Lab assay of single mutants.
Amino acid sequence: MTYKLILNGKTLKGETTTEAVDAATAEKVFKQYANDNGSDGEWTYDDATKTFTVTE
């Protein structure tokens, strides 16, 4: 399945997607991506749209 990440950071904004077997796997990928790019904030997940959002 395709999962989407929306970044609403102070310095990093945008979207990216990943293919993953489940939401937990996608979350690990996205959290590593956000960490690698210095983005940290409040995470939410919408199962209906398969979208993670991180807001700083």
Rank of each mutant, 00 (worst) to 15 (best):
A26Q: 00
G9N: 06
E42W: 11
E42P: 03
L7H: 03
E19F: 15
T18E: 03
D47H: 10
D36T: 09
G38Q: 08
W43L: 04
T2K: 11
T25A: 13
T44H: 13
D47I: 07
G41K: 04
T44A: 10
T18C: 15
K31C: 05
A26V: 02
E42K: 09
D46Y: 03
A34P: 02
T18I: 14
T25Y: 06
T11R: 10
D36L: 12
N8K: 11
L7I: 15
M1V: 13
N8T: 10
T16D: 02
Y45M: 00
E19T: 14
D47W: 07
A24G: 07
D22T: 04
L12I: 13
Y45G: 00
N8V: 13
Y3N: 04
D36K: 10
N37C: 14
N35D: 10
A23W: 13
Q32R: 10
T55N: 09
V21N: 09
A26T: 00
Y33W: 14
D22W: 01
A48W: 07
K31R: 15
K31L: 08
G38C: 10
K31Y: 05
G9L: 15
T55Q: 07
D22R: 01
G41A: 05
D40C: 13
S39V: 15
K10W: 09
E15G: 08
F30E: 01
D47V: 08
E56H: 08
K13E: 05
D36F: 11
T2Y: 07
L12W: 14
N37P: 03
K50C: 05
S39T: 14
L7E: 02
K50R: 14
F30Q: 01
K4H: 13
T51A: 03
M1Q: 14
N8Q: 12
I6R: 04
D40W: 15
K13N: 09
K10L: 14
A48L: 11
T25C: 07
N35I: 15
T18F: 11
T53D: 02
L7F: 13
T25P: 00
K4Q: 05
G14R: 14
E19N: 12
T44L: 07
Y45A: 00
W43S: 00
M1D: 14
N37S: 09
Y3H: 04
G9K: 06
K31W: 07
T2V: 13
A26F: 01
V29E: 06
K13Y: 12
T44E: 08
T51P: 00
Y33R: 03
Y45L: 01
T55G: 05
V21W: 12
K31F: 05
A23G: 04
T17Y: 13
Y33G: 01
T51M: 03
A20L: 01
L7W: 12
E15I: 13
G14V: 14
T25G: 07
V21P: 15
W43G: 00
N35R: 15
E42T: 13
T53S: 05
Y33L: 06
A23Y: 13
Q32N: 06
G9A: 06
G38N: 10
S39A: 15
L12K: 13
K10E: 09
L5P: 03
G38A: 08
N35H: 14
T55V: 08
M1K: 12
F52H: 01
E56M: 11
V21C: 12
G41P: 02
K28S: 08
T11P: 05
D40G: 10
E42Y: 12
N35V: 14
A20H: 02
K4S: 05
V21F: 11
T49K: 06
L5C: 09
Q32D: 06
E56K: 06
V29T: 10
V29C: 07
K31G: 02
L5F: 05
T16Y: 15
F30G: 00
F30W: 00
M1G: 10
A24Y: 09
W43Q: 00
K28A: 12
Y45Q: 00
N37L: 15
T55S: 09
L5A: 02
E15L: 09
L12H: 13
A20E: 03
T11C: 15
N8S: 08
G9I: 09
T53N: 04
M1T: 14
T11F: 14
G9E: 05
D46S: 05
D47F: 07
D46A: 03
T25F: 06
T55F: 08
T44S: 12
D47Q: 09
F30T: 00
F30R: 01
F52Y: 05
G41W: 15
F30C: 00
T11S: 11
A24Q: 10
F52K: 01
M1S: 13
K10V: 13
G38W: 12
L5T: 02
T11G: 14
Y45E: 00
T2M: 12
T11K: 12
K4V: 09
N37E: 07
D47P: 14
F52V: 02
E15K: 06
N35G: 09
A20W: 02
K50H: 11
A26I: 02
A24D: 08
K31S: 03
T16I: 15
Y3M: 02
E27F: 15
V54T: 02
G14H: 13
D22F: 02
T53A: 04
K31D: 01
L5E: 03
T49L: 06
A34N: 03
T53F: 10
S39L: 15
K50S: 05
A26S: 00
V54F: 12
F30L: 05
F30D: 00
G41Y: 13
A24M: 11
Y33I: 07
T25S: 13
T16C: 15
E27D: 03
T44C: 07
K4T: 14
A48K: 10
A34Y: 08
L7V: 09
Y45R: 00
E15W: 14
L12P: 06
K10M: 11
E15M: 13
D47S: 10
D46L: 03
N35S: 14
V29Q: 08
A20S: 06
K13W: 11
A48T: 11
F52T: 01
F52R: 01
K28D: 05
T17M: 08
T17W: 13
D40E: 12
L12V: 13
T44Q: 08
G9M: 14
E42G: 05
T16H: 14
E19Q: 14
V54K: 02
E56Q: 12
T53K: 04
T25M: 11
E19M: 13
T17S: 10
G14W: 15
Y3G: 04
E42L: 12
E19L: 14
L12T: 12
F52E: 00
A24R: 09
T16A: 11
Q32Y: 04
T49F: 04
E42R: 09
T49N: 07
E56T: 08
T17P: 01
G38Y: 10
G41T: 05
E56F: 14
G14L: 15
E15A: 09
T44Y: 09
Q32S: 07
T17E: 07
A48V: 10
K28Q: 11
E42F: 13
T2I: 14
V21Q: 11
T44M: 08
A23I: 09
Y33N: 01
V29F: 15
D46W: 02
T11A: 09
Q32G: 06
K13V: 09
I6G: 01
S39G: 09
Y3F: 13
S39R: 10
E56Y: 13
T53R: 06
D40H: 13
A34V: 15
E27P: 00
K10T: 12
Y45K: 00
W43H: 00
A24W: 08
T16K: 10
G41V: 05
A23T: 07
A23Q: 10
F52N: 00
V54N: 01
A24T: 09
K50A: 05
D22N: 08
G38I: 13
A48E: 12
T16N: 05
F52A: 01
A23M: 12
V29N: 05
N37I: 15
L12Y: 14
Y45D: 00
T25K: 05
L7D: 01
L5S: 01
T49Y: 04
W43N: 00
A23R: 12
T53L: 05
A23H: 08
K50D: 01
T55A: 06
F30A: 00
G9H: 06
N37V: 15
